[in-house]
Simulated scan of single mutants.
Amino acid sequence: MAVGSLSDYLPFLLTEISTQPRRQYLLLNSLKEVISACAASSLSPHVESIWSLLLQHCECPEEGTRNLVAECLGKLTLVNAAQLLPRLKQQLRAGSPLARSMVVTAVKFTIVDHPAPIDALLKDCIGDFLQTLQDDDLNVRRVSLVMFNSAAHNKPSLIRGLLATVLPHLYRETQIRKDLIREVEMGPFKHTVDDGLDVRKAAFECMYTLLDSCMEGLDVLLFLDHVEEGLKDHYDIRMLTFLMLARLASLCPAAVLQRLDRLIEPLKATCTTKVKAGSVKQEFEKQEELRRSAMRAVAALLAVPEVERSPSMADFANQIRTNADMASIYQSVQGGEGGGIGPAESMDMS
């Protein structure tokens, strides 16, 4: 209805967003659809009123509502990028951590997977937005990594020239920080909470994306140092690094061979770990999935030419072959063919 008669219905929609906090999320969804569906020419007279309303809600405590405000701002910026992108940059300096995270998320929504008029302007200023990777606030750094990941995935040309300055900050966020780990009491139990986990996951997701889109800009040995650390991290991060390792084994086998002895140990630890008796079913399932993913990475490493020169790899291959449990997992990730890991199959041991 609003798209069919903007002058009648858009002011009503904007008023409702301000005066109906309980319906605000649904109303912002409606506004997002209006911005997405309208031609730029018909929306132009209303840009200022929409922009000022959205900025009033940029520090909303509800993350879901804040993300919707950010999406509206990003889509609105596409209507008149030359005028509105500099304003977004100004908001970075003006606001609280919540406002900064909202601005960075808005920029993410201006990065689309097809050529757009905003691209040239974005390329000139995306470095300013990526400086939020050095922000003091943990959540601002997390959304900055999410925005960087979106750029690397949808439009890598925007960030290729910035890799030398951005990668040190990205790699810093892959480190486990003990000061962000705390213990919480839940009744009779003590539960460990890692406040840095979401930021680390976002950093490793960026690394995974860069393998596909910006491989030529990476120092592979330095990259592998951080992959190696990820192999010992939380379940979600280990699952990602197993995939990265398999990809690196095919993309740059020589570099992987240089690091092979250090990479084998965490893989071996994952493949041989048993869940404590009495653990819940979910723990058994997670450990089984970790072992299967680690074994897929091992299979990819065994396919690398000259891998048989590594004594530690030869020892591990022999351990898999002689252990019925590990041999079964190896066989299943290989598609059940061949009946095991013999010298004539996956690696030349002659």
Rank of each mutant, 00 (worst) to 15 (best):
E59L: 01
L85T: 05
P266L: 03
Q331W: 04
Q282V: 08
I264M: 11
F204K: 03
A120C: 11
H191F: 13
N29K: 13
A269M: 04
K276S: 10
R66G: 11
A106P: 05
A277E: 13
P311T: 14
A120N: 13
L263T: 02
L85D: 05
M244P: 07
M207N: 04
E48T: 12
M295S: 06
C206P: 00
I159T: 05
S5G: 11
I50R: 01
L55T: 01
L224M: 14
L248V: 05
D236E: 15
R321A: 08
S346F: 06
L73T: 03
D135Q: 04
L31Q: 01
M207F: 07
G340Y: 00
I181M: 12
N139M: 13
A294I: 07
L28M: 09
F189D: 14
I17V: 04
G74Q: 02
R87K: 15
S279C: 04
E288S: 15
A317P: 02
V307M: 07
C206L: 03
A344Y: 15
A303M: 09
K276L: 10
D136A: 12
Q334N: 15
H234S: 04
E16P: 01
F129Y: 07
G335Y: 11
I35D: 00
K155T: 07
L243Y: 12
E229H: 13
E337M: 13
G230Q: 05
E283Q: 09
N67A: 13
S310M: 01
T15G: 00
E71W: 00
K190W: 14
R182M: 09
I159Q: 02
V143K: 07
L180T: 14
L53I: 06
L10R: 00
